Computed example of a mutant assay.
Amino acid sequence: MNINLDIERRLLLPVDHARALSLLDDLEGTIGRFPNLKTLTRLADDSYLWQMRTMGVRIAKIAHDLSYAARYEIDRDAGAIRWQPLKGHGNALIGGEIRLAEKGAQTEMLFKVEGVMHDVPVPLLYRPLAGPFIVSKMTTLIERFLARTGEALATKIPVKTFPKKKSS
């Protein structure tokens, strides 16, 4: 069974836009916060293979070991990380975007993902429920990722800056 994903979530981060933009400087660190990520393998400078821990409930036989590859693009001007699926890797094609928008003294973080998980093994009896169930599990992981990212940004020790000396 194939399961389509089209999920969008937002979180208001308790940090200014400049601090939030540091997410763009450490792509591996940023995506490495995603819950249930088992391994992240670099395929090329801008491409990674994700391998996730089992998602779902094995006892109900609605479980899937998600694996996919994507090519990432960092758009500093737009405050965004975007990814496009790479065919021929894993069992899903997933693309998406993380976008940071200034909201006064805080930053809104948008996480959007769309794609398809292929060949999810689901017993015939559970097929009507499997799609919404797996999408719900993925939505929960995205919300946990947003919370982890907000916490990581909020607890970072600020870099001490010194005023510039005036020349006499």
Rank of each mutant, 00 (worst) to 15 (best):
K112R: 15
K87L: 13
S22E: 11
I81L: 10
N4V: 11
T39R: 11
F145E: 02
K61G: 00
I98A: 07
R82A: 12
L146P: 01
I157F: 06
F34C: 01
L12Y: 08
E114S: 06
G56L: 08
L124R: 09
M55K: 08
T140P: 00
L129M: 15
E8I: 13
L141W: 12
V159D: 11
L5K: 03
E102L: 09
I62V: 15
T140H: 13
G90M: 06
P132G: 01
T30V: 07
A80E: 12
T39Q: 10
Q51N: 14
R82H: 01
V159S: 02
D119G: 03
N36Y: 10
G32Q: 05
H64G: 00
G150N: 04
H118G: 02
G79R: 06
G104A: 02
F162C: 00
D26R: 04
L27P: 01
K87F: 14
K156Q: 14
R53M: 10
T41G: 06
M109F: 07
L43P: 03
D16A: 01
G56Y: 09
I134S: 02
G79V: 08
T39K: 08
Q51V: 14
S47R: 13
I62R: 01
D16W: 02
A69I: 07
I59G: 00
L49S: 06
P35I: 07
Y126F: 15
E151D: 14
K165G: 10
D25G: 10
D75M: 05
E108W: 07
V122L: 05
L86C: 06
S47H: 07
I3D: 02
A130T: 04
L43C: 02
K164P: 02
A20R: 01
A130N: 06
P85F: 11
L93K: 10
S67V: 14
A60F: 15
